[in-house]
């Protein structure tokens, strides 16, 4: 991992890192069940998540979509009493298995949260924090990655003159893009976004959406959203969750124009949820 990180800055950042045009899946979910103690939050779902595309998870609150998302990089481990059955295959390994090095997994499957949560440090340190832990110590290399990831997160022009100011001096939208920058600095393969724009104003929201579409060429993205327009604008495939079940999973266009299940139709037309 360390060598990979060191090498990767020499790559041409504008070129997609995955040259495969055929849609190939990066995550295969097989009969995944997630429990909080006695309560089952996700009831055995199976789906393929495609490489270099945006997959949106929609559904009313409490439908299990966030729980599912958090299980992909094992953030659910933090919740006492929660456990998962079934499997999520990534690079040929079941990442739910006991012998997975969760820390290494999270470097490859990054996550951005609903509320912007920058560290109480400078903008620069927010990005270098994890890089330093991953073993990158050289100042020039760090500078390079900071600039590259801020550019990719469409934040560079706004903050390049005050990299050493507190991250708390940024607006909410800027903070969220900083969180995205900090995640892509680790060059993960998958980025999980948990309602990343819901706490933002409309202009910041639009910027984050543009950014997500932009990131697709380099990363596989899974996004949980409450906002149906957002899902239809940015995602390639959409999965509709209800009460812990995966009701329908298809191309976004199909879901929003001609869903096969009645419940989906009812939800996206706003009849409940």
């Amino acid at each position: 991992m360390v060598t990979a990180l060191k090498e990767r800055t020499t790559m041409d950042v504008t070129a997609p890192s995955h040259h495969n045009d055929r849609l190939e899946s990066i995550l295969s979910v097989n009969n995944l069940q997630i429990f909080y103690g006695e309560k089952r939050a996700v009831n055995g779902i199976s789906m393929e998540i495609e490489k270099n595309s945006v997959t949106a998870l929609i559904g009313p609150s409490g439908c299990g979509k966030s729980t599912f998302l958090r299980s992909i990089n094992r953030m659910n481990d933090l919740i006492p009493g929660s456990y998962a059955k079934g499997e999520i295959i990534y690079e040929g390994l079941n990442i739910l298995a006991e012998d997975i090095n969760v820390t290494a997994l999270r470097k490859e499957i990054g996550m951005v949260f609903q509320k912007p949560n920058p560290f109480p440090k400078s903008i620069y340190e927010n990005i270098t924090h994890a890089l330093k832990f991953a073993g990158i110590k050289k100042k020039s290399k760090l500078d390079e990655i900071v600039e590259e990831s801020l550019r990719n997160a469409a934040l560079w022009d706004e903050v390049k003159d005050r990299l050493h100011s507190s991250a708390y001096s940024l607006s909410g939208g800027q903070q969220q893009r900083l969180c995205i920058a900090r995640t892509i600095a680790m060059k993960p393969n998958v980025i999980l976004l948990d309602e990343p724009a819901s706490a933002l104003d409309p202009i910041s929201n639009a910027k984050v959406e543009d950014l997500i579409v932009d990131l697709k060429k380099d990363y596989s993205i899974v996004i949980v959203t409450h906002n149906m327009q957002q899902a239809s604008r940015i995602s390639d495939k959409t999965a509709f969750f209800l009460n812990g079940d995966l009701i329908e999973y298809d191309r976004t266009e199909k879901i929003f124009t001609n869903p096969s299940v009645e419940k989906t139709e009812e939800y996206i037309s706003g009849r409940f949820g």
Binding site: N73, R106, K107, G110, M111, F113, K115, A130, F133, M186
Partner: peptide, 15 residues
């Protein structure tokens, strides 16, 4: 300490 700070750090692959 706010929980999201801890989550942010763990989600970046920090032990």
């Amino acid at each position: 300490v706010p929980r999201d700070l801890k989550e942010a750090s763990l989600a970046l692959g920090i032990t």
